[in-house]
């Protein structure tokens, strides 16, 4: 059988023109088709992600000498971040470094981001649950409504919170006018809480969608099966719904956590001095402080920390479950 079909066909392919042979190859090879589809993405990724990243890695090994860059490779920038010294304490934890502000800010950023991520996921889950299970007729409308906050720019949304929480802001003047308070509350703006509130508002819509998708994907007969086998609604949620929606929760959490750690717009606008995050310091290195090598080293330092936390998180949450669900 093989000899009958194999021989003549190959000979025939040789005699065809190049374009036809290319098309045949394209139709036959799944991998080639995949790469061709990916080409634009790969190009963009390469130009806008890989190249700058490599540049930054290179820069982190240079030194800034006033307005010039010294191109000799050195670990000095990294050393300046973790160089032991008298140090300082933050939240009762000692940071025994010569310049503890970098590590303190990193930990603080991670914590603030973690809090914001937790709040966001906890708020997004019920909303996603509602749309997936309770909304029967107008799912699409609900989804569109959820994206409405994204229609205005990120900066505008941050400013909006400034207007709401400010000294003469909507909240304060509102409370004064209804007589709840006499003096404007000073603790609303320019602190970590304000940053977390603003971040929560800005990223909530993004977090709802992955959770919604993973909830929507759950076969309804699985829920009925759980009930049938003796689970009340709450138990069923804990034993079936939650574990099956975990992939969505994880991707939501990562999607919010990773970018918010390095955010500098929000802390700059509503954070004040106490709400400062590592992004602010990095941005300053590339701006006012004009120390690109240190800024690069700090960025990479932060990226490594975020990567480590994400890996830890994924490992802790049980990767096998995600795999089982995906298959």
């Amino acid at each position: 059988m093989a000899s009958v079909t194999g021989g003549p066909l190959v000979g025939h392919a040789r005699s065809r023109p190049l374009s036809q042979r290319f098309r045949a190859l394209l139709l036959r090879s799944e991998a080639l088709r995949g790469y061709i589809l990916l080409t634009p993405t790969l190009l963009v990724m390469f130009l806008l992600l890989v190249v700058p990243l490599c540049g930054m890695i290179a820069f982190s090994f240079f030194t800034q000498v006033y307005f010039d860059i010294d191109f000799t490779l050195t670990l000095k920038n990294y050393w300046s971040i973790i160089k032991p010294g008298a140090g300082n304490t933050y939240l009762g934890i000692p940071f025994p470094f010569e310049t503890p502000v970098y590590t303190i800010l990193l930990v603080k950023s991670l914590l603030m981001s973690l809090v914001a991520t937790s709040v966001i996921v906890l708020m997004a889950y019920p909303m996603a649950y509602f749309i997936a299970f309770r909304a029967t007729n107008h799912k699409f409308l609900w989804l569109v409504l959820i994206t409405v906050p994204l229609w205005t720019s990120y900066l505008l949304r941050v400013f909006a919170w400034k207007v709401i929480l400010g000294h003469n802001g909507v909240l304060n003047s509102g409370l004064i006018s209804i007589g709840v308070i006499e003096e404007p509350l000073g603790f609303l703006l320019y602190n970590p809480a304000a940053v977390i509130i603003t971040l929560t508002h800005a990223w909530l819509a993004f977090a709802i969608l992955p959770i919604y998708v993973s909830l929507e994907k759950i076969d309804r007969s699985l829920l009925e099966a759980a009930t049938d086998l003796g689970d009340s609604k709450l138990i069923r949620f804990l034993r079936v719904t939650l574990p099956l929606s975990l992939p969505g929760v994880i991707s939501s959490a990562l999607m919010v956590f990773i970018p918010t750690v390095g955010d500098y717009v929000t802390p700059a606008q509503v954070g004040g001095t106490s709400g400062i995050m590592i992004g602010t310091i990095i941005q300053r290195q590339f701006g006012a402080a004009n120390n690109w090598p240190l800024g690069s080293a700090l960025s990479i330092f932060m990226m490594l920390a975020v990567t480590a936390i994400v890996c830890l998180f994924l490992w802790g949450v049980g990767n096998d479950r995600i795999k089982a669900r995906g298959a």
Partner: peptide
């Protein structure tokens, strides 16, 4: 006091 065998089997994937 009933149990069901579903058409789609509804085996818990996790």
């Amino acid at each position: 006091p009933t149990n069901t065998v579903f058409q789609s089997y509804a085996i818990f994937p996790h």
